[in-house]
Every structure is written in structure tokens, then in C-alpha cells.
């Protein structure tokens, strides 16, 4: 019990991205086992937990803020996380999802659900489906971000360095290891 308490709690979050950053995370392979001694993944698409925990030490957030759901989530994450890491170009710069920003959200929906559809064209109107925001934004335009990790996706090595640096009590600077589009 006491040993568990010293572990760092980590969340990984998947917003508007392709999950490539999470693939890279898994690409750490056997190093994941090493890291498991020090960290506890408390929330992730890879673990079965529905609600974001009350207090998280580190959150690795993949993806841009594109929908009302992303927006709600990131605010909640920020409020309950000590160190928020924007992981990958979508989180850092809105990247590919932001290419839609030159169009109106309504035009995109109508292209996808009406113009290009032959059978029963209709716009999604279920209130449980999140709405598209007018503009896709990187995380730091919504809430403060502590560490920026560029890359599409950042390599497993880069992610490993970020985590081990944090474990060593240092704020990671990884611009030498990665770059936008890397």
C-alpha cells in the first residue's frame, strides 16, 4: 500500500487525433514494464476507467480541441492535473484536424452528411453527440500547458525521455529530440 502511494499517477488522454501518439506510447515496448515500477496509469483509452480522477500528477494529452466534448474534457483535466503535457502536433499545434479551419463547421457537416451521402442524408441531431467547435484549437489556446512535445507522432524515445525526466524531478525539454512533423 505504502509502495503504491509513492507511484506517480499518470493519465493519457485521446482528444481529436489519430491515436498515433498512443501507438508511439505503446512503442516504448519493454520500457513500459520498467516505467510501471514508478508510474500508475490511472486514466487512459488503454485502461478501463470512465471518469477522470480527482487528482492526477501527469496527463499526456493527445489531440486537438475540436468538439464540445474535447472542450469540456480539457478543462476538467486541467483542473485535476498537476502537470499537463501536450503530446504530439495535434495537441501542440492543432495539426491535421485544424486544416478544416478554413471551412465553416456547418459546411463540413453538410458535405459529410448530406452532399456525399446517397442513402438517407441527414445531419446528426442526437443531443448526446458532441457538436463541432467553429475552430479547432491547440490545447494551450484553451488551458495552460506545462510541457510541449512536438512530433507526428513523437517517437517512443521522446516520450520515454519526457517521462523519465519528470520522474527525475526535471521539466523535460525535448526540442532536440523531436520537431513538428517528426
Amino acid at each position: 500500500m505504502s509502495e503504491q502511494k509513492t507511484k506517480v499517477t499518470v493519465a493519457t488522454v485521446w482528444l481529436d487525433g489519430c491515436s498515433g501518439c498512443h501507438m508511439s506510447l505503446i512503442d516504448m515496448d519493454e520500457r513500459l514494464i520498467e516505467l510501471a515500477q514508478y508510474i500508475d496509469v490511472v486514466y487512459s483509452p488503454l485502461v478501463d476507467r470512465k471518469d477522470y480522477p480527482e487528482a492526477v500528477d501527469v496527463a499526456l494529452v493527445e489531440g486537438a480541441i475540436s468538439s464540445s466534448e474535447d472542450l469540456e474534457k480539457i478543462k476538467k483535466i486541467r483542473a485535476h492535473t498537476k502537470i499537463l503535457i501536450a503530446l504530439g502536433d495535434c495537441a501542440v499545434a492543432a495539426n491535421v484536424p485544424s486544416i478544416r479551419n478554413i471551412f465553416k463547421a456547418s459546411d463540413i457537416l453538410s458535405r459529410g452528411y448530406l452532399e456525399n451521402v446517397t442513402a438517407q442524408p441527414q445531419l446528426p441531431n442526437d443531443p448526446t453527440i458532441p457538436t463541432l467547435l467553429p475552430v479547432v484549437r491547440p490545447i494551450h489556446e484553451i488551458v495552460p500547458v506545462d510541457v510541449f512535445v512536438q512530433g507526428c507522432p513523437p517517437s517512443a524515445d521522446t516520450i520515454y525521455t519526457v517521462i523519465t525526466e519528470l520522474l527525475a524531478g526535471r521539466m523535460p525539454v525535448v526540442t532536440e529530440l523531436t520537431r513538428p512533423g517528426a
Binding site: R179, P180, G181
Partner: peptide
């Protein structure tokens, strides 16, 4: 892109 990396522009 190379300059961004070299000069450490992270966002």
C-alpha cells in the same frame, strides 16, 4: 522546420 527545431520553438 529545421530552424524551429534548432532554435527550440516548441509551440
Amino acid at each position: 522546420q529545421a530552424l524551429a527545431q534548432k532554435l527550440g520553438m516548441d509551440h
